[in-house]
Amino acid sequence: MDSQLFLTVTFQGILTFLLALYLYPLLVKIGRGKNLVASFNRRSSHKDRVSVLGGFGVFFVFFVLVFVGVLHLGYGLGNTEILGLLFAGMIFFFAGFLDDALDITALRKFSFQLVGTLVFLMASKLVFEDFGGLFGLHDIPLWLSWVISIFIMQLGVNAFNLIDGVDGLAASLAAVGFGMFGVSFLLHGDHPFAIMAFAGLFAVMGFLPFNFSKRYKIFLGDSGSLFVGFLLSGFSLKYVNEVHAVNASDIAGYIVWVLTVFSYPLTDVIRVFIVRVKNGKSPFRPDRKHLHHFALDRGWKHYQITLLYISYTGILLVLQYGVLSFLNAHWGFALILVSNLLLALLPSLYGKIRPAIRMETS
């Protein structure tokens, strides 16, 4: 890292701290005053009137850090990939904010997400083109590239949106993702995207203390979870495309690495959809079938649940690094598949094992 870039990233961190100290207490006050607070229902894990304007804070801080960082280093904003990410990010934020304020229908929210995805893909041209030999697949037709890219974006965005059910979980997992992408872009010499990834990291880190706070407690809201999920999904496509441009033979390993970062959110959302369909319900109908609900119902505290799933992701990343270093991407994908399958089956296994233990001890 050159000295100018180091100073820029350091300045981003200091600026985040200063902005957060003023911004989040203000957003808590505005949220309560304008009744922009989390609604109470049977799925709620809170009892107080908590502002849902945390997403605005993350959105605002991210854009300030990006403009300061990118312009300071003289890159300008003529890069269509950067512009596509920023404009599409605004659309995702707006869709989430509408849902927070007006509780719009799932179809309308999905429509905004689709528009945002198309804006990003058409502006950036960052579509998924090559599996790099993973599953025996290589280059794929252009139409299929667009279909897969749209699916990846929607799945990633909604996965982060749906896991935002306990304090710190979505933001902490996002911090892991932003940190990984920031370092990776830096190693590839892509300083503009490294700055944006670190901006995302600092933005969620500035939010986290207030998410856990009692006096100034604030939630991401749909605006924050959709925005953060979009950024991470967009960075994923950029990451894979960047590797493709440098060395196409490395793509499979990098795809597996991205899947490892997204392991918990993807496992949770796929599991929930399967359980809902199995029970004859719409996969989009909210309930208490998420893995964090399973832990909450057994007396776990919010910070314990966040620490548990962050630890799971961290351990999986360390194991994955070893697998990809000494074996290959197929073994890496097998590691993800087995680990996430066990995670998804945890509630069922717990329901069968605990009665057996009770019978043995009684």
Rank of each mutant, 00 (worst) to 15 (best):
T8V: 13
Y309H: 12
L342V: 04
F193A: 10
R358W: 00
Q12R: 06
V277A: 12
L126T: 03
F178P: 04
L162G: 06
G55V: 01
D130F: 03
L220D: 02
Q304I: 00
F235A: 10
G133C: 07
F181V: 09
L296K: 13
L121T: 07
F198V: 06
F17A: 15
G351Q: 15
A295S: 13
L73A: 06
A175H: 02
A356P: 00
S45A: 10
L86N: 06
N279S: 12
K289T: 12
I305Q: 07
V70S: 11
H292Q: 14
T117K: 01
A123D: 02
L201P: 06
S213C: 05
I357C: 13
S223C: 13
S111E: 10
V183P: 03
A174L: 10
V61E: 05
I30M: 07
V166Q: 06
F112P: 07
L341W: 07
L21P: 00
M205R: 03
P347H: 05
F227A: 10
L118G: 08
S124V: 02
F87E: 10
A123P: 02
A203W: 07
I195S: 04
Y254V: 02
T361V: 12
K47F: 09
L169S: 09
G299H: 08
F219I: 07
L102K: 15
V157Q: 11
F160N: 03
A356E: 09
I270E: 02
Q320W: 00
L102V: 00
F40N: 12
